[in-house]
Write a protein that binds this DNA or RNA. Structure first.
Length: 647
RNA sequence: GCUCAUAUAGCUCAGCGGUAGAGCACUUGCUUGGUAAGUAAGAGGUCACCGGUUCAAGUCCGGUUAUGAGCUCCA
């Protein structure tokens, strides 16, 4: 038997090492600096503690906190070792459940007989810092199932016992301890070799969560935190959170007087004049784009008899999300049951079905700003981002299987153009392919999936594939854009549907003179106007580009001697369809500037005696905080040019 | 939907058993002031809704509704 093994490093280089070498020893072989920075390693892709040994030829990577894997391991240690130990120190009767990492941080769930509130977080944090300062070494021991169960049963850690019992594993249970603190915890690992490798962390929130995420189980206390390799990264993250809070569209909407919601219509928007003006500007823009790209705009009923929903399959599959109305018709024997449409597609098929269609008519592209209502669970609603009443920039393309690819390509081109105009330079594409349960033949699925993929490839765009992520009725593309502070929003979608044309009996007459089924493509670019406006407001932090801004320019007077001059300027703007406001109030100019800046008016014209005397306008730009003086004619031309819809 | 928290003036919030408060906004004076808050006075509230405890309830208790955070990431 050989006493040497070959280890292969990520760069492909190979080293000989004795059998039984530990991760730490491998790191030392590579370099002393790496040995110092190393926090864990992986053997053939499986993460291990540095103290673990290697007995066979293997692919090895050493992790430091600079890698994504390393950072995640560190977060896991902060959760499962530091936070858990702090909780046991402060609440000895607490029973530990689980403590995984999440995006940007971690949490720990535990059962506690006393209420832990957000006010207790600083106390827990302090205890965690004390624990980290001990610089205890983290060690692990391996146990058999019976030993592990007995150990945790003795400590009354019933969740750990359950985890072991449910693990389907008989041996090799890892129990970690820290120095001589007496703290032990069951953990899949790996962990940092010692607490002095812990970076910067902060507890962020607290909430309830069910054991195993099942609402039939008892509610545990969950403490959330975030951890980074140093204070700089931590602060960067905390600043991002603050920035997101400042941009919260619900807050900005109040400042800018855009809309409100109230108890009588939860999840529905009362648009105020300023907010509706943004909505209309966006809608006019989309309308213009769609018409220029071969769509015919239609409009279909909001309230439709249940018969259509039964035929479309929504009554069966989607009823609990539908607003249903009962009408007592005076002379009718039966009550008539209607539903508010949750989607526009069945209605669009009705329009398609009206009159005989020939293959020569295809593709038919029907678009509707379709107002939909869905009964979303109360806990999921969130400002404009998740509502019960919303309007989709919906569209359905009826085409042949052979036309899917070209329709996909032209849709993506349109979407890309619109996202660019709206200030989003990049977007990701996700292709979702056939799920287990589906309608349609494999042949049709092959064709559609290939067509979608070929279109993306032809446009040379990056995309990812979600195997099995498609709807039962067809494969789809989802479009995810990234906003100004790096958050992702899924907005656009393009979905093939082999089901609805069948159910609602859509047909066209082919070249051969017989009837065929068209394929139906569901598509949206914004998704919903409500949500997209929320995204836009947050992306621009309320400072919308001129063509979308509810008030484009405000004329503010320095003294009431120039009121008439300012009024005439405003009137000239009105005549040019610009959205101008007049502020003649008896207030100082600084006050007016402050107020309109808060309301995010992009252009503020200061009108005083100087301007009146020279027939000029001094315009202060909100985003650049600078002032330029123009002749009236120049100013008006400039305004008209820069405030028109992107073409 | 579930858990926890919150609900007081247009807005942001204080008050937590004994006749409802502040700042900003609003109205009216004074001030005509040149690039992010001039000044004084005034007006403004069934303290979300329903019920209970109490001599007495924004205040304590129960329920309802709405809002907020979380509810996928498994030792």
């Amino acid at each position: 038997m050989s006493t040497e093994i070959t280890i292969t490093l990520p760069d492909g280089s190979q080293k000989q090492a004795p059998v039984g070498i530990s991760g730490l020893e491998i790191a030392s072989m590579i370099g002393a600096g790496l040995a110092k920075a190393a926090i864990a390693f992986s053997v053939n892709g499986e993460q291990r503690d540095l103290s673990d040994i290697v007995n066979q030829d293997s692919d090895i990577s050493i992790f430091t906190v600079d890698s994504d894997e390393g950072l995640e391991i560190m977060r896991h240690t902060v959760a499962a070792q530091v936070l858990a130990r702090a909780i046991k120190n402060l609440y000895p009767s607490a029973k530990l459940a689980i403590g995984p990492t999440i995006d940007d941080g971690f949490y720990y769930d535990f059962l506690c007989d006393q209420t832990v509130s957000i006010d207790d977080l600083p106390k827990i944090e302090k205890e965690m810092e004390k624990i980290v300062a001990s610089k205890d070494l983290i060690k692990k021991t391996i146990h058999s199932k019976n030993d592990a169960i007995k150990g945790f049963a003795d400590l009354d850690e019933s969740y750990k016992v359950k985890i072991i019992e449910d693990s389907g594993q008989d041996s090799d249970f890892q129990i970690y301890n820290q120095g001589d603190s007496g703290f032990i915890d069951l953990c899949r690992g790996p962990h940092l070799p010692s607490l002095d490798k812990v970076g910067s962390f902060k507890l962020t929130k607290i909430s309830g969560a069910y054991w195993k995420g099942d609402s039939n189980n008892e509610m545990l206390t969950r403490v959330y935190g975030t951890a980074w390799k140093n204070d700089k990264d931590l602060n960067k993250y905390l600043t991002l959170l603050e920035e997101a809070e400042k941009r919260d569209h619900r807050k900005l909407a109040k400042q800018m007087d855009l809309f409100h919601m109230q108890e009588e219509a939860p999840g529905m928007v009362f648009w105020h004049p300023k907010g509706w003006s943004i909505y209309i500007a966006l809608q006019n823009y989309i309308r213009k784009k769609q018409i220029a790209n071969g769509y015919d705009e239609i409009n279909t009923p909001l309230v439709v008899d249940r018969k259509l929903w039964e035929a479309s399959g929504h009554w069966d599959k989607y009823r609990e999300n539908m607003f249903i109305t009962e009408i007592d018709e005076e002379h009718a024997n039966e009550k008539r049951v209607n539903a508010l449409k949750p989607m526009n597609c069945p209605c669009h098929v009705q329009v398609y079905n009206h009159g005989l269609k020939s293959y020569r008519d295809l593709p038919i592209r029907l678009a509707e700003f379709g107002a939909c209502h869905r009964y979303e669970a109360s806990g999921t609603m969130h400002g404009l981002m998740r509502v019960r009443g919303f309007t989709q920039d919906d569209g359905h393309i009826f085409c042949t299987e052979d036309q899917i690819e070209s329709e996909t390509a032209s849709f993506i081109a349109l979407l890309s153009n619109i996202y660019t105009d709206l200030g989003f330079d990049t977007f990701d594409i996700k292709l979702s392919t056939r799920p287990e349960v589906r309608v349609g033949s494999d042949e049709v699925w092959d064709k559609a999936e290939n067509a979608l993929e070929a279109a993306i490839k032809k446009l040379d765009l990056p995309y990812s594939v979600e195997e099995g992520g498609g709807a039962f009725y067809g494969p789809k593309l989802d479009f995810v854009l990234t906003d100004a502070i790096g958050r992702e929003w899924q907005c656009g979608t393009f979905q093939a549907d082999f089901n609805l044309p069948e159910r609602l009996d859509a047909e066209y007459v082919g070249e051969d003179g017989t009837k065929h089924r068209p394929v139906m493509m569901h598509r949206a670019i914004l998704g919903s106007f409500e949500r997209f406006l929320g995204v836009l407001i947050e992306n621009y932090a309320g400072k919308l580009p001129l063509w979308l801004a509810p008030t484009q320019i405000v004329f503010m007077t320095v003294t009431d001697e120039v009121s008439d001059y300012a009024s005439s300027l405003k009137a000239q703007c009105d005549a040019l369809n610009l959205r101008a406001e007049l502020d003649l109030r008896n207030e100082k100019i600084g006050y007016k500037i402050r107020e309109h800046s808060t309301a995010k008016v992009p252009l503020m014209a200061v009108i005083g005696k100087e301007e009146m005397a020279s027939n000029t306008v001094s315009i202060r730009n909100l985003s650049e905080n600078k002032t330029d003086t123009y002749s009236v004619e120049e100013a008006l031309n400039l305004l008209v040019d820069s405030s028109s819809l992107p073409s």
